[in-house]
Amino acid sequence: MSKIIKNGQIVEDAWQVVKLAEGETADAVTFGANQLLPLAVWQARKDEILALGAPIGVWLDSAEGPEAIAGDLAHFAVVAVNFPKFADGRGYSTARLLRERYGYTGELRAIGDVLHDQLFFMKRCGFDAYAVRADKDIAAALAGLNDFSETYQAAVDQPQPLFRRRAA
């Protein structure tokens, strides 16, 4: 078990990220409990996975758009979005689209190069779980969720921009 931040708390977590090695196809995966499966595996073996009857988790890489799973969201207990490098910001758009356009309400987890100083932005874009990079101090990173007490823009955590609330 490793630790993640979920809903603002540090908790034990059983989900394992399954990755396909170079050249490996979806057939290579042996299913087990609490697996976060690559999009390719979900797409290739959807019926098998559904037949297992267990909670399902899927992860999107930074180049994989949310459109690919938009119709499947009701099946997922966890959707994770990978940040291969923290400076790759595509996952922020992915997260907003999952929440705001496709109505996903389950756990949305940031995985990969997930660090203290990006958590605030991730939270704003709709993430509620963060697999902080293993070599970092997760307790210290927790503070990153609350770097700012106000926000100008509309986003997932605060759908009203400041100017609509300021005026009130």
């Binding site: 790759d88 910001g89 922020y92 907003r96 605030f120 932005f121 874009c125 926000t151 100008y152």
Partner: peptide
């Protein structure tokens, strides 16, 4: 104000 700490477009 819109661009300051825009959460989606920081990276």
């Amino acid at each position: 104000q819109w661009s300051t700490f825009h959460p989606e477009f920081a990276f």
